[in-house]
Design a binder for these strands. Structure first.
Lengths: 195, 195
DNA sequence: ATTTTTATAATACGGTTGTGCTGAAAAGGA
DNA sequence: TCCTTTTCAGCACAACCGTATTATAAAAAT
């Protein structure tokens, strides 16, 4: 056997380089050459790990999803008051620090570059059902106002979260993280029973 | 003087071809060549109206904005009950028919392809202030619940509108227009005084 | 009819793209 | 030591990109 190199680790390094390039130059600048340069490897080496550009981008972007999922799973493992836990989870889906902001920006640039393919590729498919579960969790803990339509509330919260992420991308100077947090908190309060 | 050709009209035809290309192939496929082909003109003819690609795209996308603005101005000119007028305006900002959906999809693909330039270019500048005015209009007509923070409410509504547009783009099969209308209507009701 | 200006077409050019191909270097197993 | 397999580098190629240049056609103005 040849030189030992952790395949998965190397692929993640390349994915990280991909993120940096997308953040710096947008999806248009995310060429295989510039990514290889950013990762400080040759074009041939890059192609050894990803045989096509689509494969590379799909991997790099799926990794973004997995990271976000992992963070949410961590929060679910903690022992927190229900409403605090819900707020913490929602705060992970919205750009409140430089890391999550970078993740969101990369993700948004990618999904919108897919054009009409985004639907069939099923990007962000389990997001709505995830938000749905959050709402049901609130109801189960008797924290949700009882006059609300659960489906509509979930859809509203879901749109609110991604709308905030979108505006944080397009207008980062106007939409500060404090403002994002305030919007999300106030909406959460508005659908919860006040006590 | 030479052959008479309505300059502005021709540019709008080319812009329309640009929209079709972006919808079909995404921003990546929006090359000057494919746009010229879609508009059924030569590359040289295209270049006679737009000397650079950026200029063409900027024109085509600003036209999208102007169309939306014009539709809203039309509604403002009508004589409608205040809440109906507000709902009608919000419905123009969200993809509820094939035309507005196409407009939104093209617009979203464009602004996200700009990457970090979007902020400095000030795309969708006056959107927030526009929503702000809608909220103030509701308050002035004594329709807005008085316990609400106006700024936060405007920011929430703004994010909700664009979040819905975004999801209509990414998940058109799940998020039907009926559902979009229901979400927007229910949120509008929730911030208005019930009577 | 001739001039002049615009509209359009055709072609060219330098650069970049994704991807394929070849071969060498490296390193564990025999 | 030799062999096999992985890792990686480099180059090549065809296609496409945005833009520039040039030439032709058309039509209003003189």
């Amino acid at each position: 056997m040849p030189k030992i190199v952790n395949h998965e680790e190397k692929k993640e390094q390349i994915a990280a380089a991909t993120w940096r390039v997308v953040l710096r130059d947008g999806m248009k600048g995310a060429t295989v050459r510039s990514i290889a340069k950013e990762a400080d490897i040759s074009l041939g080496a890059l192609r050894h790990y990803f045989s096509t550009q689509d494969e590379l981008l799909a991997y790099a972007m799926q990794l973004v999803r997995e990271r976000a999922n992992a963070r949410i799973q961590d929060i679910l493992g903690e022992d927190l008051p229900p409403k605090t836990m819900v707020r913490r989870i929602l705060f992970e889906l919205v750009p409140l620090n430089e890391d999550t902001r970078a993740e969101m920006d990369v993700w948004l640039a990618y999904v919108f570059s897919l054009g009409r393919k985004a639907d069939s590729l099923g990007v962000q498919q389990d997001m709505y059902s995830g938000i749905r579960k959050v709402i049901e969790y609130l109801e189960h803990r008797r924290l949700l106002r009882e006059d609300l339509d659960k489906e509509l509330t979930a859809e509203t919260l879901y749109s609110l979260v991604d709308g905030l992420a979108m505006h944080a991308f397009l207008e980062p100077r106007r939409l500060t993280k404090e403002r994002i947090a305030a919007v999300l908190t106030s909406y959460l309060d508005s659908i919860c029973i006040d006590e």
